[in-house]
Simulated assay, not measured.
Amino acid sequence: MQQVEEQANIPRPPGRDVEGGGAGAMTPEGKERKVAAPGDSMKKWVFICRSCALVAAFLSFILMVFVSDFTQAEGFSYLFSMAVLTTVYMAVQVGFKGHELRTKKDVISPKVSVWIDYSGDQFLAYMLFSSASVGATTCNFIRSAGLEGPGFGVAAASVSMSFFAFFCLAFTSIFSAYRLFTVLSNS
């Protein structure tokens, strides 16, 4: 009990009015440590989710290319077009966000970027889920009709990759919605 009271009476070093240091806190060795900004970890997670969505959408449309006559089924054509659109959007977003994380400078104004991220993520998440659902329905119809061919497994894998891309994009859209409403509430 006496040790606890003694620790409470130890004066803090001058200039440090926050326990644990704060930005630029000194370590016991006398070196200054960098403390990450509150939004940096969220930006990294968004970047990781966007990168996963990019890879999954890319694999989805590449796998669909290997399905012979995928244009004959409207569901597969829709899945392919949404996978291509998502791949292009995610490639641009990963490029911009990766540059921003690396250089700590915004490529696009933050007020405009928030709206682009929110609307693009929401729109593409819906379209990707819709196309993956149609692709799954088309796969189910082909299987129930007994029309399975050599490319059926590849088409099913493409549908699975689209669903995975949707889930990654859904997490990203949650983060972009949080960021948008935070910016709006601070304005």
Rank of each mutant, 00 (worst) to 15 (best):
S51L: 14
I62C: 09
A53C: 14
F80I: 11
L79G: 15
L59G: 11
F175S: 01
T86V: 03
A157L: 15
K34L: 01
P150R: 15
A125W: 02
I108P: 05
V35S: 02
Q122R: 00
I174D: 04
V65W: 12
L59T: 08
V88L: 05
E148M: 12
Q3W: 13
N186C: 13
K104G: 06
F58N: 05
V92Q: 01
G135H: 05
C49Y: 06
K97R: 06
S158Y: 14
S173V: 03
T103Q: 04
A83C: 04
V55F: 08
L85R: 01
A132R: 08
G151H: 06
V67T: 14
T182G: 09
I116S: 02
M82D: 08
A23W: 08
G153T: 05
S131R: 11
E6N: 04
A36N: 10
A56P: 13
R33Q: 03
S60N: 05
L124E: 04
S160H: 04
V183G: 10
E32F: 06
G98V: 06
S176C: 02
F96P: 13
T182K: 07
V94I: 06
A73Q: 07
F166Y: 02
K111N: 15
E6D: 04
I48G: 03
D17E: 15
G95Y: 07
Y178I: 09
I174Y: 13
M26W: 12
G75H: 04
Q72G: 12
A73P: 04
S131M: 04
A8D: 01
P150D: 13
V46C: 07
P38R: 02
V114G: 06
E19G: 11
D40N: 01
T71F: 15
P13W: 03
K104P: 14
D106E: 03
G22M: 10
V65K: 03
M90Q: 15
A145P: 11
F141R: 11
Q7M: 04
L85I: 08
V112M: 02
K105C: 04
G153L: 12
A165W: 04
Y126G: 10
Y126L: 13
V55E: 00
W115Q: 06
L85C: 07
A157Q: 13
G98F: 09
V35F: 14
A83R: 08
I48V: 07
R102L: 12
A125M: 14
V94F: 08
A83Y: 07
E6H: 09
S81W: 01
C52D: 02
S60T: 05
A57W: 08
P28G: 15
E148R: 13
K104A: 07
V35A: 05
S113I: 05
D117R: 11
F70K: 14
F58P: 06
I108C: 05
M161D: 02
G120M: 14
V154R: 03
V92L: 10
I108S: 00
Q3I: 09
L184V: 15
F181N: 13
N9T: 11
M127H: 08
V112T: 10
E5K: 03
A165S: 07
V183N: 12
S51W: 08
